[in-house]
Every structure is written in structure tokens, then in C-alpha cells.
Design a protein around this nucleic acid. Sequence first.
RNA 1: GCAGCCGUAGCUCAGUUGGUUAGAGCACCAGAUUGUGGAUCUGGGGGUCCCCCGUUCGAGCCGGGGCGGCUGUACCA
Length: 518
Amino acid sequence: MSKADKIKARAPRGFADRTPADLGATERMLAAIRESYELYGFEGVETPFVEYTDSLGKFLPDQDRPNEGVFSFQDDDEQWLSLRYDLTAPLARYVAENFDALPKPYRSYRAGWVFRNEKPGPGRFRQFMQFDADTVGSGSVAADAEICMMAADTLEKLGLKRGDFIIKINNRKVLDGVLEAAGLGGEENEAKRLIVLRAIDKLDRLGVDGVRLLLSGGRRDESGDFTKGAELDANAQRVILAFLGTGMDERVLPFEEASQSGQAPTQEQEHQANLAIIDTIQSLVAQSRRGMEGVEELRQIADSIHAAGYSDGRIRIDPSVVRGLEYYTGPVYEAELTFQVQDEDGRPVRFGSVGGGGRYDGLVGRFRTEPVPATGFSIGVSRLLSALQMVKSPIVSGAEKPGPVVVLVMDRDQIAAYQRMVSTLRQAGIRAELYLGSSGMKAQMKYADRRQSPCVVIQGSNERERGEVEIKDLIEGAKAAGAIASNEEWKAARPAQFSVTEDKLVEAVREVLARHFG
RNA sequence: GCAGCCGUAGCUCAGUUGGUUAGAGCACCAGAUUGUGGAUCUGGGGGUCCCCCGUUCGAGCCGGGGCGGCUGUACCA
């Protein structure tokens, strides 16, 4: 068979293999998140990867675009199934299905893989991991405020320092109110509202000028591609931009005051800035009942986070947060990293949000007659892992486990004896293995080196006659290597190597391990 | 999806106006050293020059189409 006939070995686009280092990092992250969520009183639950497509709330795949956005397939009873694309819709299904058996409010967390059939990018995959926590059955904004505080606590547990991230809060009702104030209420303006919301969402990326273009005629990007704008009249543009401006203008004051005193803004100053933003928003949406509801909710959340001591810049009111257009009904939150991340070529990477969530009062209600309010937060574990790896955070580059002790095979006819040594080590709880390849001693040493073995066990005929084994400390030996120039010297010195009688094998290996790993 | 740039060994890349058998460094394997990781030296394996079609006596190089990658943009539950 010629090489051309061979199948090319490659993972599918947007799907990634995970190395031992990835696995270790992910485990540590999941443990930290779980600890944080449990501290807040949430309990674990798990749902399957696959759900009925209609449970997920997506339209059934059609002939032309059978898998738009989600991976779907038909069961043998003709029912459409889909791989879940987030953990919220499956939770809503679970709660609805087990409604009577669950305590209300129901507070649970879950971690797992989700799948999206869309264009992958750096830190963006078609299979990725999320870690969610939700409170179902409570309409109180205390539930929303609490989840934002928990998000902040959790990111800190993951090794992010204060100031490295920010939890931004907005409210969909406020956005609706602003759209109404801009004269975009009513059925006929549905399309324009969508464009405006998308434009608002891009404030951090495109700036005020970019958003203004999208609100008016449209915007041409650097590649020459054109995005059609919302064609709003001057007054509507003014309202929207004034709304977004509150996010920036009110923040400036505490910073100016702070810089005069030479200190970071105090919690009180941060809180006043939040309240000032809310006041300005209120003046804009005063005519909208729904908008005023949202303003009132924001005010309560701001008070809660201030009372709990989180109004130190970790959690902020930010009018530019939109989140998805589908199911959020009230407060929405987004966790963003504030530090710059660079890829291995030194180019800046934009990570966007590493978590987010909000209130989705209608989602469980799709399955049941009574309304069931709910709110939740999701951490994008895979994306956050990519970001943490790029900045070499300790939690992802934590100490790797040492490899196994390798027992070398010097004489093929002595395999049974070598195997017995391996068993002895394992029974003593020492990670060990027999060299299972077919190469000579030099290759076996290289193998042990690559496996990060702390030491190897050597017994050739000389040692066997004396009833001894040689232990070679590879870590100590590597240190000694630098001082040795010639190969003759290297071979003669046999650095970091010593002999013990066979019955002292475990003891000697333990000594070497203790030397390096305490 | 749309646009721009890119595609030569496992990796990073050379490759002249289109002209013998396509190269280097790193990595890998082996020997020097029949029992020792590193360093050094020597040798070796590894390529459909992304694919297809075309132009040409002749294509890694020119043209068209496709696929893949990167960047921006759109969508994003």
C-alpha cells in the first residue's frame, strides 16, 4: 500500500486532543470551580450529551441546512436528536421533567462538554466545556446578585487576581426600555431592534464610532467587507449613544477623584458610579414601564453587591452587555478578562468573555403550564483554559507528576525477575513499569528520560551474581551532566548511581523519590 | 457565510527568468561506545512541493477551480 492510499491522520476541524498537561489543568480548574459553587450551596447534577432537538428550542433541521449551528441526527423512530449546545436548555428540561421531586428554589451545578457546529478559532472549539450553576424557581434579584458574586469568587479561586477580570451586569428590560425610548417599539421595528442590540454588543470591540456607523448607514471593515446598519434617525441614534455613554462618563469621575488622592477608587466611589449610571439610564427610559422595572432591578443588585463588599471594581453595571438574543429576560452578566493575552507569535489575542449568564424566566415554562423563573451563570472552561495557558497561570502549569520508575531489561531471559521487581515496587505504592520495548540499554535510558522517570533500576549479570540492583537517579544525573565534557568521563563517572542488595530495592527507590519530591 | 493573506520533511523555513535526482536547521533513528540519558562527530529514515485541471518540450514556480490554515467581519443559544 503506497502512502497515497493511507488515511491522513488528523483531528476534525474545531476538535482538539487533550494532552496530559491539559487533563491536569482541567482537573484542577474543575475542582476549584466545584468547590466555589458548593460553598454557595449548589449541588451537582448531570444530564446527557444528547437531547431531543425540540427540547433544546432549536428549529428542526431542514433539507438545505440540516445542521446549522447544532449537530443533529434522526433516531430510528424518526425523532430528531441534537448534541447539546449549552447546559442551560438541558437543565430546563431536567427541572421540568422532575419538577415535583425537586426542592424549590432548586440550586444545582453541572460541568460538561457542549457542541456547536460553527467556525472554530483560537480558543474557540466545536466541542468545549462549560461549568454552570443555576437557581431555578426564584424570581428574586438576590439570586442574580448572588450569582455574580459567586462568579467573582470563582474566578479568583482559579488564580485570577483582582483587576484581572470584571463581572459586568446589565438588564434586558433596560435595553428594551431604551429601544422603546428610541422609538423602536412595536412589531414593525423587530429587525431594527436586532441590529441595534448587536451593535451595542460590539461597543468594546468597535468603540463608539463603530457603533454609531452600525446605527446609521453601516460599516466597512478593514478587509473591505460591509455590514449594513440600522438606518436610525438622528434622535434614535442620540438616545442609544447617550445610553452607552453612561457606561463611560460616570466611571470617569471616581477615577479622577482617586487619581488626585493617588489611590484606586474606593468601594464607595465605585458604588456611587454604579448608582450614577443607573440614574442616567432611568432618565432615558422613564417613559417605559418595562425599562423602569429593569432600572429598579439594577439598583437592587448594585445595593446587594455593595453591601456584600463586591463593589470594588470586580462587579460593575455596564450598559453595553447584551448576551444572546434568544432567551434572557432580566439581568444579564458577562465575565471578561481585562489583561492582554498574546499567542506564541506575539500577536494579541482577543478572548472575549470567559463566562456569562442571566435570567431566563421563560425557559422552563416552555415545558410546563406555570411560569418558572430561573437565573444562572456559565464558565467557559475550555476558553478560560486557553487564556490561562497563554499567560502561564500557575493553576494550568501546576507541577507535573513524576513518571514511573522504569526497570530496565538487561537480559531477555530474566524478564520474570524484572517483572517481580516491578510488582514489588507497585505493592509498595510506587509508580513503576517494566521496559516493554525491544531496544538496547541506551534506548531504554532515553525512554526513561522521556517518561520523566525519577530513576531506573538496573540489574545485569554482574549485579545479579552479587544479589544486588543498581539504582540510577535520573534527576540528580541530569544535574551532573552539565559538568561533564567528554563521553568517556560521562560513562566512567556513572553519576548519581548506586548499588543496593535486592531486598533494599523499595527502600532505595523511596530515598530517591524523597530526595526530589519530599 | 463574506473578504484579505498563506499552503515545500514531524516543526521552522530556503528554493534564481519555468530547466538534471527538491534543500537547510531543529526533531527522530542508528553507529562511534558489544552495560548507561547529556555534549560531540558520522551516517540514516522521512516529501504526491495541499488536490485537480490547464499552458508548456519541461511546472514547486505560470493560469483556473477546489480543499485547508491564519486574520478581519457576520452569526453565536
